[in-house]
Design a protein around this nucleic acid. Structure first.
Length: 522
RNA sequence: GGGGGCAUAACUCAGUUGGUAGAGUAGUUGGCUUUUAACCAAUUUGUCCCAGGUUCAAGUCCUGGUGCCCUCACCA
């Protein structure tokens, strides 16, 4: 690792030090110039405040001649010996700086020689225009704020390798403004959704990530161990059961942007940790959740910039255009099933033939197994047609252990799934609040020994229901997938800052050496 | 887990029927006071993913491995 850093850059670092310049100064600004013989003194109070590139450019016409201060990373340089143009990039974008030998403080101009592309600099100077009319900061002060020891990517093609882009996201972010923008938009989408909740008097909460019993979804969990209590714990696969406990407690409207963890494969739409927003509202139901989900998607779409000139909301995802202008379509599970399978979902005479046709087997003679097979048909034959945005409502009760059966048709339960872009984006229930029925359903799940089913009955949750959960609607939205569609990103990796990857050799965690050496400590 | 593809300089990529490693960018040196993928001249940099094998000779062919991408399966 001796040659880890680039020797050329190390040399310049040394040159800076020997010339008395700190390559990593603690403060970013410019110190006032010492009173020199020629009287070029600048008082600290006259020093301008740092501004973002795009803010300066937005008003560059009116502000000609003003002194401005910019900070940023130099990603382009065109030098002329006694003159250099720099492309200075900050969070907002690019602005050009021009350093002329006869304008810049001489010892500061000299440090330009120690600057490489990728270094982070400060330029203070007068805002003006070049001969071709580009707004430019004509520097009088110049300072390297951080000496970079790694080369930035090739300036025209940038960082193209998908693996490197994800592994070194920090490079991807500064080298590619589009990438940076899409993550700012991700944040804006989430903020817009949060505001929808807050306007409706929802409370944002945080519930445990470490669960002694995993539940609220069907998925394989990550397992860990708590030393002091000597107990097994699981990273949550869903926050659902804790959020509903809060509703029992009288927090009638709660939401959580919850990182959840599922120990399953990776794909273009799966990451082992991802973000769900779950929300619960007392005295609402699955149709109330439908309305709110629609509002959330619309708010997210606006924040993502999907709004067209005619006021409609559109996005293009995987080369397919989706119209997100409300209201979204709604169809019942039974109707959709009938339409695309050609047989009623309740037709126990005709369905076995259909199942056989598609290689679907009923695992055993339980109700759950039967309806699971029916639902496999639905997934294979119906879901591909659900381009969305569309709500499918009223699901078979047997496959919905947390949803309340319909009063006049108990084979069906108050549940919807929301489809968009060929993906399941949301799942909502009229929450099951009958403690006895809930207990029975939990016990069935535990008996079936499915590794994805809860490991044991969450009796405390049943007890919470026994205290009384008001009628309520609840919903979970896959935030990352929604953002994929809204931003038109094909893979979940493009909307996750640090998607899961195998550790890089020599860089990642324990390369064959287990870090399990701190059992007593910490 | 199955199938297909890719892996060459810090970055983007060439590399012929197997013949001893290339370009552009970045870096270095010099020139240049209005460029913007600046330009001109010179110049440095390689575990050709790893380990075997075939061969007089392997970046190239073969086998195995690793990583990544695509795709299918899995993922209510």
């Amino acid at each position: 690792m001796a040659d880890f850093f680039h020797p050329d850059r190390l040399q310049k670092l040394e040159d800076l030090k020997t010339s008395g310049t700190d390559p990593y100064p603690a403060q970013a600004g410019f110190a006032p110039l010492a009173a020199a013989g020629d009287g070029g003194q600048v008082a600290a109070s006259n020093s301008p405040v740092r501004e973002l590139a795009t803010d300066i450019l937005a008003k560059s016409e009116e502000r000609q001649g003003e002194t401005v201060l910019i900070y940023g990373r130099v990603l382009g340089r065109r030098g002329y010996g006694k003159l250099a143009f720099l492309d200075v990039w900050d969070q907002s974008g690019r602005i050009q700086a021009c350093l002329q030998k006869d304008l810049v403080v001489p010892e500061e101009f000299a440090t330009l020689k120690q600057m490489n592309l990728g270094d982070i600099v400060a330029v203070e100077g007068e805002l003006g225009k070049t001969k071709v009319g580009e707004p430019t900061v004509f520097g009088t002060r110049f300072r390297i704020l951080t000496k970079a020891l790694e080369n930035p990517p090739e300036k025209f093609h940038g960082l193209a390798d998908a693996e490197l882009r994800a592994r070194r996201r920090y490079v991807d972010l500064f080298a590619n403004q589009e990438v940076r923008d899409s993550f700012f938009r991700r944040s804006a989408i989430i903020q817009a959704m949060r505001e929808v909740f807050l306007e409706r008097a929802y409370t944002e909460v945080d519930t445990p990530v470490l669960h002694p019993i995993y539940g609220g979804a069907n998925a394989k969990p990550f397992s860990t161990h708590h030393n002091a209590l000597d107990m097994q714990l699981f990273l949550r696969i869903a926050p659902e059961l804790y959020l509903k406990r809060l509703v029992v407690g009288g927090m009638e409207r709660v939401f959580e942007f919850a990182r959840v963890f599922r120990n399953e494969g990776l794909s273009m739409r799966h990451n082992p940790e991802f973000t769900m927003v779950e929300f619960y509202e007392a005295y609402s139901d699955v149709f109330g959740m439908m309305e709110l989900t629609e509002q959330l998607v619309v708010a997210g779409a606006r924040a993502a910039g999907c709004e067209q000139e005619d006021g409609s909301l559109k996005t293009t995802f995987r080369e397919e255009e989706f119209n997100l202008t409300p209201p979204f379509a709604r169809v019942s599970y039974a109707d959709a099933f009938q339409e695309h399978v050609g047989v009623a979902a309740t037709d126990r005479e005709a369905l076995p033939a259909k199942m056989k046709e598609h290689g679907i087997e009923v695992a055993d003679d339980s109700e759950y197994a039967w309806w699971k097979a029916v639902n496999d048909l639905f997934e294979n034959l119906v879901e591909p047609h659900l381009r969305g945005p569309i709500f499918v409502h009223d699901y078979p009760a047997a496959i919905c252990p947390l949803a309340k059966p319909l009063q006049d048709a108990p084979e069906w339960a108050g549940r919807f799934e929301f489809f968009l872009g060929g993906m399941e984006l949301a799942n909502a229930f009229s929450e099951l609040n009958d403690p006895q029925l809930q207990l029975a359903k939990f016990e069935e799940q535990v008996v079936d020994k499915d590794p994805e089913s809860p490991n044991q009955v969450d009796l405390d949750y049943v007890r919470a229901l026994a205290y009384g959960l008001p009628p309520a609607g609840g919903c979970g939205i896959g935030v990352d997938r929604l953002i994929m569609v809204l931003l038109g990103k094909d893979t979940i990796r493009d909307v996750l800052l640090f998607p899961h990857m195998r550790p890089e050799k020599d860089f990642g965690a324990a390369d064959g050496e287990p870090a399990e050496t701190c059992a007593d400590g910490e």
